[in-house]
Each structure stands twice: as C-alpha cells, then as structure tokens.
Design a binder for these strands. Sequence first.
DNA 1: GAGTACCT
DNA 2: CGAT
Length: 216
Amino acid sequence: MAADLFGPAHGPAGVEPLSAGTFLLHGFAEAQAPALLEALGHILAQSPLRHLITPGGQRMSVAMSNCGPLGWVSDRSGYRYQASDPETGQPWPPMPDVLRDLARSAATLAGFPDFAPDACLINRYAPGTRLSLHQDRDERDLSAPIVSVSLGLPAVFLFGGLTRSDPVRQLTLYHGDVLVWGGPDRLRFHGVKPLAEGIHSLLGAQRINLTFRRAA
DNA sequence: GAGTACCT
DNA sequence: CGAT
C-alpha cells in the first residue's frame, strides 16, 4: 500500500516532527556530504573560518564564516548581517547551488516551500566547542525558516522555548541530519553542548554546521 | 536603544 | 529589558 512506498501516514519517511514548526530530517544530507564539503573547501579558501568576538568582548569558541549575499558577524559593536567579509573586505563567496538546493528541498519537506536563503552561516566545532542558548533574531524576514545541516561529529543540540527560562530539550544531531524550524518555532532559543571528542571518517575531529537563513 | 550567540 |  501507499504507506509502504511513501512512508507512514503522518509524514514522509525520515521526517520527524518535533513540534508544530520543527522537523528533523534524519540523514537527509548524507548522500550529498562529499559535494557539500568540496564546495565548502572553495568557500573557506576565500573567506576563512575565524573566531568572532561578542559585543561583551568574549571570543566565541565556534569558528565561523559565511557564503551568500549576506553573512552574519559579531564584534564589539554588535550582531548584524553584512554583504562583505570584515576580514577580507571582499563580498562573501557566492552560495553554491548544491547548498542552496539542499536547503530549499529540506525546507519544502518540512512544510516551508519556496525557501530562498540569502545567507549561509558556516560553523566549525572542535571538541569542547559550544554555543550557548540564544535566539536567531537578527534576520529581517522571520517568516522564513532556519535550515541547519549537520556534518561530521555528532552534537547535542539544545532546543528551548520562546523565553530563555523555558524548559530545554536535548537531541543528538548526527552527520547528514537536517533540522528545520520556523513558523511558531522560529524564535525558539537554541544552542549546542560542548562537542565530545571523536573522529569522524569524513571530517576527522570536527563538526561542521551549515545554517541557512533569509536575512533580508 | 541596549544588549546580544560571552563568562561563572 | 526599559523608556517613550
């Protein structure tokens, strides 16, 4: 019957609803991982990973870069999106089609059709790297979802509510997983626990996270 | 407008 | 969050 061919009646196979506007696409990017990493190599040769400084003056443990028309940056003056890499003065590298198309198809599967990201934040986690609980609220367009692609070592993702004190769920994100949140969940607090030591067969001792947004 | 994904 |  249809459920055998197309998955269970509650949704496509491999799409796990976590909340009204949040979906975990197990292993959705796994087959594309080599192509994604190839594209990433070219991007990072133009705009290298670097540790940004928070407005409070602290060095972030995550190493970041961007591709696409806009990139997220933080320094002593605050958080913002901008069209050029402050490190090089050049525009951020273009967003390769393989990245944009992956994000778009994942968003569609999660119920957010026509997702057209104009920013892709690239985060590298080494063992011990963490990202404390925060909201993605620097984007002008909050109607578009966030699409998060996990590559390499697994990480414990923290997924809270709409206020900082709401209870926080923990879920492990594995290589190839894609998490999509939007609509009523778009402003949920989230973060990542310190990355555990390990060696991934493709990426070695690191996790790479790609986060696609519609910033403008 | 400040503060902010930083720290204990 | 607070000031307006």
